[in-house]
Design a protein around this nucleic acid. Structure first.
Lengths: 101, 101
DNA sequence: CGCTTAAATTCCTAAATAATAATGTATGAT
DNA sequence: ATCATACATTATTATTTAGGAATTTAAGCG
């Protein structure tokens, strides 16, 4: 029974999964991820796009980096953030498809 | 450009979406929803399946009902909870597919 | 009616999260 | 070496959330 397997897996993974979802579950961070879904961006770009303070954006990004949702790479004096992996991309797309219409 | 549309929608919906995700983002509630994905269940059943206290389960269910994730109906002295809609079902399945393996 | 079971509600305390402001650090340009 | 830019870090306070215990409500049964 496939449902039973899912539950067994879920019992083992729900702590990690809920950590990930907590990192997603914020209007500001969700919007940042939405923009990153369109491609990697520097902090300043994201700050402009989301119209929030530099400090708050930095906190958002730090949090999401710690949780493994985003990755950074340096490019001169900029830092370019990206969606960390395909799984998150697919999850975000599902969220958009189901709830952003 | 479909991505731009998504961002516009996301700007409008991210508060609501993040509310929903917050309600999901808890190991206990996630597990409850996992069980409900297998079909409607009474509070006592869920309490046994998840091995948590009656009080905590009731808190979980109340929270999720307020956020519209679950629905209740009375059946004698039991209260039967269900996943509120297909959208949530699909979201949960995506979460399981991507993160519960 | 009084009792039991099922579940909700209230109350309380601890812990996590969020927001803002201020300060610090690395890089590139002059 | 100095300065501006880009971003991170720290500190602080306010708000939310979590969890447990106790109480309450509602239904069914003797």
């Amino acid at each position: 029974m496939t449902a039973a397997i899912s539950i067994l897996k879920m019992e083992k993974t729900c702590d990690n999964v809920s950590q990930i979802l907590k990192a997603l579950a914020h209007p500001g961070r969700l919007l940042v991820l939405g923009h990153l879904l369109n491609g990697p961006k520097a902090v300043g770009e994201l700050t402009d796009l989301c119209a929030i303070s530099q400090s708050q954006m930095s906190h958002f990004l730090m949090r999401m980096k710690i949780e493994g949702l985003v990755t950074v790479e340096r490019e001169g004096k900029f830092r370019i953030y990206s969606i960390a992996d395909k799984r998150l991309g697919r999850l975000l797309q599902t969220i958009q498809r189901e709830y952003c219409r």
